[in-house]
Design a protein around this nucleic acid. Structure first.
Lengths: 216, 216
DNA sequence: TAAGGATATGAAGGATTCTTCAGGTTTGGA
DNA sequence: TCCAAACCTGAAGAATCCTTCATATCCTTA
């Protein structure tokens, strides 16, 4: 949606003193708080700055406009997930099917749950503008990390690891998202935690080609 | 998000002449068009009414405010999916594991793809206000439909069909959503169509308890 | 065909919101 | 201590946007 020139989305200037870093941090958390309390529709520059305890003008010193602020926050959150997955992928290199599957599912859940509140809030921004580019980049990074990981699994061979990696990322991301977004209860989250690894493993086993030696 | 009293979300009055039905239809499709073209952030009453070829006042004759309009559209879309799933569930009653799995995945995909454009648009509204209630209702309907379906599968037994049904709905909904929302290419959609049934079946097999007679 | 309900119009009021800018305050180094 | 740069302030301009309502047109039915 309303695709602003990418340059215009970049922060206006970088902080140099610790004072301003604190300010930026305050703005970020305030944004998330407002997002949760009032929703995207009522997220205004005034409200955010009030909550952050700074003046509106200050915000505009670091972000050329509201969109840039929101964009920065989404970007940060997305980075968190991607990094968590890259880390997990590295750690799981060469492990067997089950370990990899459980590892990926758990890593994703942990990354999201660690900051459940802001995760939920972030989802709300997502629709507001065109995240295709960001998403696409994140997706590619994921696939690039997961695909070789799949290839390195000793007890399974995949016809097309890229496709499987793509689907796996979509499955993890999507499932977690809907459950979280539906304002789910603790029970639902617990169920998710139990079932997600199972789904993950199920799909991988399903996609693993002919040679399936270790199986019930 | 800004939770308005439910009553206020209801349409203001029902159409009685065919003329007004056409108007409402025009408003609905216009809303979706604007949503796709300009995004939620730029969806204004004026823009929608212009596109629909009616006056702003006309809109307010049927919806007390903008939110009610958006709400109505989301509700309609959600109904479509739920109905498609209920239908599929009925049709698949008593079939074996693979048939049920494929049937559900395909039904979901078809329901979404049939109206891919508006589906994508709808996702954008979702974040704008509190859909927890709507979502929750839809979720329950799904689980109520899928759960007995799982119980009736002859070649599989599930420890907790409710949990499995819940997870299955989340998996289907979430996966399809992220792929569609990421503004994916035709290729990605094709991959999804191939892999989703596989994921579905994989998860179900994984959850099916001890007795798994028919398997490689 | 005439009356009355249903439907449509769109200018304008009222309320919000984004963003700027001229001027103040704080910080860190010379 | 003093200054320049970094940082902060917040009232106010400019732009939208939502919603209403007095008025006009269209349908139906008696």
């Amino acid at each position: 949606m309303n695709r602003p020139a990418p340059d215009l989305l970049k922060p206006r200037k970088a902080p140099q003193q610790s004072r301003s870093m604190a300010t930026i941090e305050a703005i970020h958390t305030a944004t998330i708080q407002v997002l949760l309390a009032d929703g995207v529709g009522r997220l205004t520059t005034t409200r955010v700055s009030e909550r952050a305890g700074v003046s509106v003008g200050t915000m505009y010193q670091y972000y050329p406009h509201k969109q840039a602020l929101l964009f920065a926050i989404v970007e940060r959150q997305l980075d968190l997930i991607v990094r968590a997955m890259l880390e997990a992928a590295e750690r799981l290199e060469g492990c067997d099917l089950r370990t990899v599957s459980d590892g990926l599912a758990t890593a994703w859940l942990d990354a999201k749950m660690a900051d459940l509140v802001s995760s939920r809030a972030i989802y709300a921004i997502a629709a507001e503008f065109d995240l295709a580019e960001l998403m696409s980049r994140a997706k590619n990074l994921m696939v690039e990390a997961i695909s070789p990981l799949l290839r390195a699994i000793p007890d399974a061979r995949f016809a097309d690891p890229d496709v499987t990696a793509f689907m796996l990322a979509a499955l993890l991301g999507g499932t977690v998202r809907v459950v979280m977004e539906a304002g789910s209860s603790e029970d639902d989250l617990e169920r998710l935690r139990q079932e997600l690894p199972r789904a993950c493993l199920g799909y991988l086993k399903m996609s693993a080609c002919p040679l399936c030696p270790s199986d019930e």
